[in-house]
């Protein structure tokens, strides 16, 4: 689903249980004009900045990385991680490209327990 449509769907879902999720109030809390949010939701303008997407994610209780990906963006902190060791992380990501989720999760780093 397109970014804007998804935002609208999630916001409307929240609004059914809580009227403070109206377009106007959500826009206010996120710090943008209601008209701008409306255009975003209807896909009439490109997705907003990473900062605004993060605020929307926080407001709608959605995962910021997922929303950024839907908007065709990669978060700044992830870019910095890759830029720091580009070859290492590029190789790693390519190797994991086809891996199933459970295999990717195994790569997560465990805190080592020692002798105490």
């Amino acid at each position: 689903m397109a970014f804007g449509g998804y935002i609208r769907e999630v916001r409307e879902l929240r609004r059914r249980g809580d009227r403070s999720f109206s377009l106007r109030q959500v826009a206010g809390r996120v710090g943008i004009e209601p008209a701008y949010l409306s255009k975003i939701e209807r896909g009439q303008t490109p997705p907003p900045s990473e900062r605004t997407i993060r605020r929307l994610a926080s407001e709608l209780d959605e995962d910021a990385d997922v929303l950024l990906a839907m908007a065709g963006k990669v978060s700044q902190d992830l870019q910095e991680i890759v830029m720091l060791r580009p070859k290492l992380f590029a190789d790693l990501l390519r190797q994991l490209r086809e891996a199933p989720d459970h295999a990717v999760l195994r790569v997560a780093r465990e805190i080592r327990d020692g002798d105490w």
């Binding site: 805190i111 080592r112 327990d113 020692g114 002798d115 105490w116």
Partner: peptide, 20 residues
């Protein structure tokens, strides 16, 4: 931080314990 990431700089014994 992971103790293992700074194993050469943390107090002696911490690497044996592992952890953070």
């Amino acid at each position: 931080h992971h103790v293992d990431d700074y194993a050469d700089r943390v107090p002696q014994g911490w690497s044996d314990h592992g952890g953070v």
